[in-house]
Design a protein around this nucleic acid. Structure first.
Lengths: 217, 217
DNA sequence: TGTACATCAGTGAACGCGCGTTCACTGATGTAC
DNA sequence: TGTACATCAGTGAACGCGCGTTCACTGATGTAC
């Protein structure tokens, strides 16, 4: 929760209205999906005229960009918080799951179907790295004594994305496995693909996590 | 490739135009995403007037439904073909990957971010079962001698979705693991999340597949 | 084979709608002296 | 404390646009005798 420097009444008011706009925007996304986001609809819901929103966001794209930024930021914050209070990889996994379930459309805005042509703002790359770093460190804490896999060896030669993180190859491999497996279970669960199957998604999640935590051959 | 009963010239013509409409629709989805699908735009691209499309599809939703149906059908066909020519679980995995890479937006239409409020047509449930059956059988062929997991035991009591398939609990568990892990790698790859990372997605896919094929403890 | 009729693909005008965005404005809030 | 001025949030009218969909129609294709 980064504190803004706002201090004058006007600045506080502006910040408050901006916040309300983004809240309404999230509500709308949850109801009809990100592509149905409409500035006029948000204004109507807030009881103000459409053009008034242009005092707060330069365009519709600008608002979406802000939402994307907020989603990344929120995930980085929640994982950072968990990690700094001692959570290990299993704890982070449950934090991630809680964050995803709290607002599925927020999860999908970041990790779901990309809108062809839409480019995420550059500064989300930094937040994305922040998230990876937290998870990668948790993987490093878990790997001592593991055998290096073939894929781990590949990664050792292609580790630019790890941004200087000294994680050993086993940790790099485990991080990717963690990411893709958690995403696999979560995204199918959130998309409702297990809905008619009468199975308990949390048990599947737990089983995948347990397998992930085992020492690797 | 189920053969339609069409025989008169008019029926053949109709089928051909319907096909062209869906082809243009796919092109448009690939360019701007499923939510941007516009009947008028398709008509313009085909050089005919907008209302003419109503001879072929009752509404925009009807067209989308047809696309969804086609996507499921196509995957079931391609997996069925592979399976009936002797492919094992690994072969099916590569078939799935090939199908997904051939048209990412088609993959996402089925397994991607759901559009809140949109209901897939009921008959896709049958095709979905068809897909599951093929994969489940391949899992069954792989499981003899494996230990039953806790999650496998849970599934034994919640196997209605397997539609009478006599797969043992280990196979049920392995099927779900197969599904979520493949989806995890594929959907992140197709969404471009590995793009800036300079790693080879096919190696990650292969590593996950290899792990999946190992006997389970 | 030729004529009379039915079918049906495609047209063009029209409908109401909601969208993003601009612009000149009013009126309230804050600032300077 | 009171007045003069500047800032700026919000309004309402207007813009052009593309959408899905309907309707009465024209003209070509197919069918029946």
């Amino acid at each position: 929760m980064a504190t803004t420097g706002a201090s004058t009444p006007r600045e506080r008011y502006r910040a408050q209205v901006r916040t309300e706009i983004t809240e309404r925007a999230w509500e709308q996304i949850a109801t009809a999906g990100a592509s149905a986001l409409s500035l006029n609809a948000i204004a109507k819901q807030m009881g103000i005229s459409g053009p008034a929103l242009y005092r707060y966001f330069a365009s519709r794209d600008d608002l979406i960009t802000e939402l994307v930024r907020g989603a990344y930021r929120s995930l980085a914050d929640v994982l950072g918080e968990a990690s700094s209070t001692g959570a290990d990889l299993a704890g982070l996994a449950h934090t991630l799951r809680g964050w995803a379930l709290a607002d599925p459309q927020r999860y999908f805005l970041v990790y779901g179907t990309p809108i062809p042509g839409y480019q995420a703002p550059e500064d989300t790359l930094a937040t994305s790295s922040e998230i990876m770093t937290i998870l990668l460190d948790a993987c490093t804490a878990l790997t001592p004594g593991n055998t290096v896999t073939a894929f781990g060896t590949h990664l050792e030669g292609h580790r630019d994305w790890a941004a200087g993180n000294p994680a050993p190859p086993e940790a790099l491999h485990r991080f990717l496995t963690f990411w893709t497996r958690m995403h696999g279970v979560l995204s199918l669960e959130l998309a409702g693909h297990f809905a008619g199957m009468d199975l308990d998604p949390v048990l599947l999640f737990a089983a995948e996590l347990e397998d992930l935590l085992k020492p690797r051959s």
